[in-house]
């Protein structure tokens, strides 16, 4: 038997297809290396990310959730990211209020041209999550 594997944070990353997902493509094309902890789910717009997705991911055992969209003013749908900013601010505040580590939920604006920034966002997130250990507060402790 192998010895116990060290803790690796599991991150669900909701990426806007117009910016952050394209930005992560650019990171790929530029071969910028970053940790593999974040698994992307590409969405049409950060504005389409329901607070329920975040709670659900945490419930299903995510150690961290990232939502990444277009910079303000750059939304492909004009104002989707403005909606995301307001809605997800409430999620962030609520999690923090309940005593869940605020580092567990993160939002970033990454444009299609910011491959390096995308990699850095993931790197920072993983580093910030590592000391916290597994997320067990909202986790329903299933497989």
């Amino acid at each position: 038997m192998s010895e116990q594997t060290p803790y690796e944070p599991r991150i669900v990353a909701f990426l806007c297809k117009w910016c952050s997902s394209a930005g992560s493509d650019l990171a790929g094309v530029s071969r910028i290396q970053y940790p593999a902890n974040a698994t992307p789910i590409t969405v049409a717009c950060s504005g389409g990310v329901s607070p329920q997705y975040i709670l659900s991911a945490l419930r299903k055992g995510a150690d961290g959730v990232l939502v990444s969209g277009c910079h303000i003013g750059d939304c492909h749908y004009m104002e989707g990211n403005m909606h995301a900013r307001r809605k997800l601010y409430l999620v962030k505040e609520l999690l923090e209020f309940a005593g869940v580590e605020p580092e567990r939920f993160r939002m970033s604006w990454v444009s299609a041209a910011e491959g390096a920034k995308f990699a850095q966002v993931v790197r920072d997130f993983v580093e910030d999550l590592r000391p916290l250990g597994p997320q067990d507060k909202l986790n329903a402790e299933r497989p």
Partner: peptide, 8 residues
Amino acid sequence: DDPGQFIR
């Protein structure tokens, strides 16, 4: 001008 400082 909704708050956005929390976004990286």
